[in-house]
């Protein structure tokens, strides 16, 4: 008699625990929206990746389509090589344009994919040819100051 009530409690406990994992997966995490089980790899080279990190999202038209898996430095071209996994459900044309963008002024950086118009699509292991580097705040400020300075020169 005692044993069955004990079993009941333990059963409830395990079910509640698994339900909590499920809540974490579906409600807190992004398992419901983004499934990485079916995916392919893409490469891209950038002059400067700014604050991009591995695990940063890859977005197209604002939708998360993949994630950055690795960032390495190419010793021949002296550029950063970014590897990404993209969800198999999303296909992009060969002449897709990869940019490093920032979410908001101080937000995290992500890779944005602008689809081009080519008929052929990118396949696993392909490299995205056209890239645009991250906007580095220091460069932005210095170029702004420089243009201000040259404006000032012109007014004189």
């Amino acid at each position: 008699m005692e044993r069955t009530t004990l079993d009941l409690w333990v059963g409830l406990f395990v079910v509640a625990g698994l339900a909590a994992v499920l809540v974490l997966a579906m409600k807190v995490g992004n398992l419901s929206t983004f499934n990485m089980s079916e995916s392919y790899n893409l490469q891209a080279e950038f002059d400067n990746i700014g604050g991009l990190k591995s695990r940063s999202p890859v977005k197209s038209a604002g939708v998360v389509v993949g994630r950055v898996t690795a960032i390495t430095f190419d010793n021949k071209t002296f550029r950063a090589r970014v590897s990404m996994v993209i969800d198999k459900r999303y296909q992009f044309p060969k002449d897709t344009f990869a940019k490093i963008l920032t979410a908001g002024l101080l937000g995290e950086q992500y890779v944005g994919l602008d689809p081009g118009g080519d008929d052929q699509v990118l396949k696993g292991g392909d490299q995205v040819a056209k890239t645009q580097s991250a906007v580095v705040l220091e460069n932005l400020i210095s170029s702004f100051l420089y243009s201000k300075a040259s404006e000032g020169d012109a007014k004189k």
Binding site: V21, L24, A25, K27, V28, G29, N30, L31, S32, T33, M36, R55, P57, V64, R67
Partner: peptide
Amino acid sequence: FWSQMQSAVDFRLDVMNGV
């Protein structure tokens, strides 16, 4: 609240690592 949470929390890397 929920959408930012969901886009930032990865199931495999965050939830599973916690487990």
